[in-house]
């Protein structure tokens, strides 16, 4: 534990001292206000459209963090041997990997907080400016709630990144596999949802549905589509469902990290 916390802090500083981090921070403060422009083009449900745009931008920024900051950090550590200086402190491999993971999550928090704050101010402004067109009231707590829930699957995806990096040969391999996983996580759940409908199911062979379900079970559930839709329309989410949603992602992240540590321990760091 005594070496873990300093490495968590170092990881945070390593990420935060990059120029791209500071640029992203600035962009995330600005983006919510820019979303007012496309939102103003709509008719009545402006609140819902604005929240949709904000959730989409949140997904995009989390992906940018994952692919352009988190993945290069851990892949470079292992591929180029930066991890040697930490492991020979000495530090156990499991501790090292966990500290890097926690450090990345800590580094994500200021970006997330900045975005949530800016988005909340934007929503407050929009609600007062377009009061007649807001159908779902009190969008600020709805958005903050939804944003926190959208963050969950990305914690799991970060753990998957570590699992991939623990076995991959370098950054290109890590990125390819991570992108493939993300693509499946992104597109499978809504497709499976569509397959439940009678007219779609009638035209799709059963084995395809079974195969897709099996693959889907192995991946993090990135589909917060129901959550974002519900909250954008001001609908309540069941507490049990939300608790289950959060717990499953945390458990998935832990499981992925455990597997990552097992793979990393068995690996030769040449």
């Amino acid at each position: 534990m005594s070496r873990t916390l300093p490495l968590v802090t170092l990881t945070f500083r390593e990420i935060a001292s990059q120029r791209v981090y500071r640029i992203l921070l600035g962009v995330l403060l600005l983006v919510p206000w820019l979303m007012l422009i496309p939102a103003s083009l709509f008719m009545f449900d402006i609140g819902k459209v604005l929240i949709d745009l904000l959730f989409t931008a949140l997904h995009a920024s989390l992906l940018i963090f994952l692919f352009f900051m988190a993945a290069p950090l851990i892949a470079r550590d292992i591929e180029q041997g930066s991890c040697h200086i930490f492991l020979t402190l000495p530090m156990r491999r499991g501790r090292y990997l966990s500290a890097r993971f926690v450090g990345l999550i800590v580094a994500l928090m200021p970006l997330f907080a900045a975005y949530a704050l800016s988005a909340s101010l934007t929503l407050t402004f929009a609600e007062s400016h377009w009061a007649a067109f807001y159908v779902a009231p009190h969008s600020v707590p709805l958005f903050d709630y939804g944003a926190a829930l959208i963050l969950m699957p990305y914690l799991a995806l970060t753990a998957v990144l570590f699992l991939i990096a623990a076995a991959a040969t370098g950054l290109p391999e890590t990125m390819v596999f991570l992108f493939s996983v993300w693509l499946l996580c992104w597109s499978l759940p809504p497709v499976l949802g569509a397959l439940l409908q009678a007219e779609v199911a009638a035209k799709t062979p059963t084995w395809i549905g079974t195969l897709l379900q099996t693959v889907n079970q192995l991946l993090p559930d990135l589909s917060s589509s129901r959550i974002s839709l519900y909250l954008a329309h001001g609908k309540k989410l069941g507490i049990e469902a939300v608790a289950g949603y959060c717990l499953q992602h945390l458990a998935y992240a832990l499981l992925a990290m455990m597997l990552a540590v097992i793979l990393f321990k068995r690996r030769d760091l040449t």
């Binding site: 949709d52 992104w186 597109s187 809504p190 589909s223 589509s225 974002s228 839709l229």
Partner: peptide
């Protein structure tokens, strides 16, 4: 649905 992914809204 596939391309919209997690942001159908």
């Amino acid at each position: 649905r596939a391309w919209a992914g997690a942001v159908p809204g």
